[in-house]
């Protein structure tokens, strides 16, 4: 999909990276400018951010130059569905932990979604495998290391 943009003369990914770098540089510089407290002796907390921001600006403009001179390496088309499945697995994990669903369910969902993304077609089976795996890990941490992984209603039954 990136190939057809070549016709316009500029490599779009390189331009985007350049813009992103300038945005990061701006954030770093802006944050440093907001600092109110300075060091009494030597360098303050803003010196390093300004240096980094300058470096990022230079790199950003270099990307613009690169965009017009060949651009970034051209990647092959990606399997968007597979990416979405893995991303969904991670989102489920984060959501489950954030909403207090606990470690075991979160891990089961992550395991099943990732396996699906990598091409397996047995979601229920994988869910079960992930569940057993998660439970085993949870109990091992809780009993052997006395580290309590994030717990939901399910985990509390075993504590």
């Amino acid at each position: 999909m990136t190939n057809d943009i070549r016709a316009q003369g500029a490599d779009k990914p390189a331009l985007i990276v350049g813009v992103l770098l300038l945005v990061v540089a701006f954030l770093v510089g802006y944050d440093a400018a907001q600092q109110t407290i300075v060091a009494t002796y030597g360098l303050g907390p803003t010196a390093m951010p300004y240096v980094v921001a300058c470096g990022l600006v230079i790199l950003g403009f270099s990307h613009f130059v690169v965009a017009f001179r060949g651009g970034l390496p051209k990647p092959e088309a990606a399997d968007g569905k597979a990416l979405l499945w893995i991303a969904a697995g991670l989102v489920c994990l984060i959501g489950c932990i954030a909403l207090g669903g606990g470690f075991v369910i979160a891990i089961a969902l992550l395991f099943a979604c990732t396996a699906r993304g990598m091409g397996r077609r047995a979601f229920a089976v994988d869910l079960a495998i992930g569940f057993v795996l998660g439970l085993a890990i949870f109990l091992a941490f809780a009993k052997l290391l006395t580290l309590i992984l994030p717990s939901g209603p399910l985990e509390r039954l075993f504590l």
């Binding site: 697995g89 994990l93 891990i107 990732t114 993304g117 397996r120 795996l133 992984l149």
Partner: peptide
């Protein structure tokens, strides 16, 4: 492979969860 990578992700998140399991960190 599907199980291997699923397992790697479980493994990878586990360490984060044990030390600092906040949604922000995840």
């Amino acid at each position: 492979q599907p199980w291997l990578y699923a397992g790697i992700l479980v493994f990878a998140t586990m360490g984060t969860l044990a030390v600092n399991g906040s949604p922000v960190e995840l």
